[in-house]
């Protein structure tokens, strides 16, 4: 891809099925300075065919292999990062979970997360609704608190929330 100075974080996210699903094989290389909206984010896809501009949203995890989830198109409409003044909003990849697709956007003010919006949440079945009704608002809150606790990563036995957090995580990752 384009040449770029190297510094900062090399983050690679993927989903591996069963122990995991179809890896997405996307590199997000963050050159120094540049917040995510800038150029210089190299995207090289293994399996997915996204050619996302800038930081944008992932074609990421969801489209994956077998199950062929439908959600990922939503990412395209949102088109990745939006910038207003100093705040940057990054749309995370759609994460497939057992209970449905999950996608969030995260707004940064500088390096602080100021908002998390749920773009997609599972609601297919009654069971899913019960689960998501309980977990989704809480999870959005978690991200904010995660910021205040200044953690680098989260250990948890996860399914829905991991998919959810992965989506948040991927937004954070893409921001670099």
């Amino acid at each position: 891809m384009s040449t770029m100075r190297w510094r900062g974080t090399l983050i690679y996210t993927g989903t591996v099925a069963a122990i995991g699903a179809a890896g997405i094989a996307r590199f997000v290389v963050t050159p120094d300075a540049a917040p995510a909206t800038a150029s210089g984010i190299g995207t090289s896809d293994g399996q997915s065919s996204s050619s996302s501009s800038g930081t944008s949203s992932g074609s990421g995890s969801s489209g994956s292999s077998s199950s062929g989830s439908s959600g990922s198109s939503a990412t395209d409409t949102t088109g990745g990062g939006t910038t207003t003044s100093d705040s940057v909003t990054v749309v995370g990849s759609v994460a497939s979970t057992r209970y449905g697709n999950v996608q969030v956007s995260v707004t940064f003010q500088g390096s602080t997360i100021t908002d998390v919006q749920t773009l997609q949440a599972p609601d297919r079945e009654r069971e899913s609704q019960q689960i998501s009704a309980r977990s989704v608002p809480v999870l959005a809150q978690e991200v904010l608190d995660a910021q205040s606790a200044q953690v680098d990563t989260v250990s948890g036995a996860t399914y829905t929330s991991e998919g959810y957090r992965e989506s948040v995580q991927s937004a954070i990752d893409q921001r670099g």
Partner: peptide, 11 residues
């Protein structure tokens, strides 16, 4: 179902 993986290599 997929388990998300991520690797962070800061420097």
């Amino acid at each position: 179902m997929g388990i998300p993986m991520s690797v962070d290599v800061p420097a």
